[in-house]
Design a protein around this nucleic acid. Structure first.
Length: 466
RNA sequence: GGCGACGUAGCCAAGUGGUAAGGCAAGGGUCUGCAAAACCCCGAUCGCCGGUUCAAAUCCGGCCGUCGCCUCCA
C-alpha cells in the first residue's frame, strides 16, 4: 500500500516518495520559547509525532529536526520584564518544553537546533543571498528582495500585489518593496547581537529555519511541517530564502496541521484563551490529549473543551477495556473465528486509513472495532491466550499512534495487589453469606481508594480506576 | 478587501461517485443480590439552491454560515 500525503504546495494528496531510499528528512517548526507551552503547541507536536511514528512503522528511517527559536523580539521583551538573561530564559522554557514532550509521549527529535547555535551559518546564508542579488543592506539591516524571486507566493497562493490592498501594513522601513522581509536586523541597544559583515545585529525571523534546516538536514528535505498559521509569511519566506540560495526545490511535502480551537476561536496568547500543557496534565492523562488530537483529522480545526476532554477520557477507557484478561477456556469455534476475522479487518483498515494522509480518526475507528470484537470474544468465554493475540495487535497498532494503553499503576500500587486480592476474597465470603451490606461497603471503600471492583458470574475482579 | 479551509445524527468525528465508520451521551434489553463492566438492540439522506450523471454527502456553479492567514503565532 502506498502512503499519500496532502501537500500544501499542490493542494492535493500526492503519493509519498523520498529523496533518499528508505530515509525521511523531516523538519518541523518548533516554538519560540518565551512562555509556557499550551495545548495548541502540544497538538502540533503530537500530530508530527504520529507522522513520524507511522513513517517508522512503514519502514522508513526518520531524521527529524525541530528547532527552538531562542533569539526573538518576544524573548527580549520578556527578559526585560523579568530582568532575566534572555538566553537563560529561553533555556528554562526549552527544558520545560522537552520535559512536557516526554510526558506527552512525544519521541525526541534527532536534532533540536537553536538559532543562537547557528549564527555563523545564518550569516553565511545571508551573505550568499546578498552576493547573488537576492538581498540588500539598508543601514545595517539586510532584506530579502522578493521581486528577484518570481515563485514567491507559490505556497500560500498569495500575489505580491495583494499586500498593497491590505490595510494593516504601515511602514516600509526603507525597504525597496513592501513585501521584502528582514534577513538580518541591525542591533538595537539592550538586545543580544552578533558581529556580522553589516555590523552588529541579529537574525530575522525566517532565515533561522532555512539555515537550521540546511545545515542539519541538507539543501533538500522530504517533509516540512508546522501549524497552518505559519504558511504565510513564515514558510513562504523560508522557501524564498532557501530556494534562492540553493537553486533547488526546498521541501517536497509541506504539511500543516489545523489550529486547536477553544470556544470557537484559535487558542492563542492574544485571544487569552490559553490552556497550558502543564495545567492540562495536572488534571488529565497525557494520552487523553493524544486521543483528542487523533480523533480528528490533523488538517482540520480541532475542537477543544471540557466536553471533548470528558468524551475522550471515556473513549480511552474503552480502548483499555479490551485489555482485561479472559476468564473462559474456549479455544476454537465461531467466537474465535469472529475475533480473527476482525483482527484481519482491523490490520488492513488501520493501514489503509493511515496511508490516506494520516487519517488517524479512521484508524481509531478500526481499533474500536477490534475492541468490540475482543470484548465480545471475552464474553463468549474465549481463553486469555487467544484473546491475547488480539490484545497484542491492539497494543501494537495503538502504539503506532503513540497511545500507551497500559494503565499507570506505579510500583507502590503494584505492591498493594496481594492485599486487594485478600480483601476481595474476604468480601467473597461475605457475599456467600449474603452479608451484602458489608460487601457493598467494602466495595465502596475500595472505589474511594481508586480500585474498581467488578462482580461477574465467574467471580470478582478488580482494577485500578483509569 | 485578498488568499485558504471547513459546514455529516444531542456532542465529537470518518467517509470524495453507487443509497452514511467509530467514540461520547440518551433510551431499551441480557447478565447481576445490587452496582459496575461487557455484550445485544436503537438514531442522521449529509448547511441551502441549482447543475452534471443511470447514480452525489462525495463532481461543478451560486448562496448562507463558521474558522484561519494577510501583524507575533504550532
Amino acid at each position: 500500500m502506498t502512503l499519500r500525503i496532502y501537500n500544501t504546495l499542490s493542494r492535493e494528496k500526492e503519493p509519498f516518495s523520498t529523496l533518499q531510499p528508505g530515509v525521511v528528512h523531516m523538519y518541523v517548526c518548533g516554538p519560540t520559547v518565551y512562555d509556557k507551552a499550551h495545548v495548541g503547541h502540544a497538538m502540533s507536536a503530537l500530530v508530527f509525532d504520529m507522522v513520524r511514528r507511522y513513517l517508522t512503522f512503514k519502514g522508513y528511517r526518520v531524521i527529524h529536526a525541530m528547532n527552538f527559536t531562542d533569539v526573538d523580539d518576544k524573548i527580549i521583551n520578556r527578559s526585560h520584564e523579568l530582568s532575566e538573561d534572555p538566553f537563560a530564559l529561553a533555556e528554562r522554557y526549552i527544558n520545560e518544553f522537552l520535559q512536557l514532550m516526554q510526558e506527552l509521549g512525544v519521541l525526541p527529535a534527532t536534532y533540536y537546533p537553536r538559532v543562537s547555535e547557528v549564527i555563523p551559518q545564518i550569516i553565511a546564508m545571508v551573505k550568499g543571498l546578498q552576493e547573488e542579488g537576492f538581498a540588500y543592506e539598508v543601514e545595517g539591516s539586510v532584506y530579502f528582495r522578493v521581486r528577484r524571486f518570481p515563485a514567491y507566493g507559490k505556497l500560500s497562493g498569495r500575489k505580491m500585489e495583494d499586500a498593497l490592498s491590505g490595510t494593516r501594513i504601515t511602514s516600509s522601513e526603507g525597504k525597496e518593496d513592501i513585501n521584502d522581509f528582514a534577513l538580518w536586523k541591525a542591533a538595537k541597544p539592550g538586545e543580544p547581537s552578533w558581529a556580522s559583515p553589516w555590523g552588529k545585529g541579529r537574525p530575522g525571523w525566517h532565515i533561522e529555519c532555512s539555515a537550521m534546516c540546511y545545515y542539519y538536514l541538507g539543501e533538500q528535505i522530504d517533509i516540512h511541517g508546522g501549524g497552518n498559521d505559519l504558511i504565510f509569511p513564515h514558510h513562504e519566506n523560508e522557501i524564498a530564502q532557501t530556494e534562492a540560495f540553493t537553486g533547488k526545490l526546498f521541501a517536497r511535502y509541506w504539511m500543516h496541521n489545523g489550529m486547536l480551537q477553544l470556544r470557537g476561536e484559535k487558542m492563542s496568547k492574544s485571544v487569552g484563551n490559553l490552556i497550558t500543557i502543564d495545567a492540562f496534565l495536572a488534571e488529565h492523562e497525557a494520552d487523553v490529549l493524544r486521543m483528542i488530537v487523533l480523533s480528528s483529522h490533523y488538517r482540520k480545526p480541532l475542537a477543544f473543551g471540557e466536553q471533548v476532554i470528558a468524551d475522550n477520557e471515556r473513549a480511552l477507557a474503552r480502548l483499555r477495556s479490551a485489555l482485561r484478561p479472559g476468564r473462559g477456556q474456549v479455544q476454537s469455534g465461531t467466537a474465535v473465528n469472529a475475533l480473527h476475522a476482525q483482527m484481519d479487518a482491523t490490520r488492513a483498515g488501520f493501514e489503509a486509513a493511515m496511508d490516506d494522509d494520516f487519517n488517524s480518526a479512521g484508524a481509531l475507528g478500526n481499533l474500536f472495532n477490534l475492541v468490540k470484537a475482543i470484548n465480545a470474544a471475552r464474553d463468549a468465554g474465549v481463553s486469555s491466550e487467544i484473546l491475547g493475540t488480539g490484545q497484542d495487535m491492539l497494543r501494537s497498532l495503538a502504539g503506532v499512534l503513540g497511545l500507551r494503553l497500559a494503565t499507570s499503576a506505579n510500583d507502590h500500587e503494584a505492591d498493594a495487589g496481594p492485599f486487594i486480592d485478600l480483601l476481595l476474597s474476604l468480601r467473597q465470603l461475605l457475599r456467600g453469606q449474603k452479608q451484602y451490606a458489608l460487601a457493598d461497603q467494602l466495595r465502596d471503600d475500595l472505589t474511594r481508594l481508586g480500585v474498581v471492583v467488578e462482580d461477574s458470574a465467574a467471580g470478582s475482579s478488580w482494577r485500578w480506576a483509569a
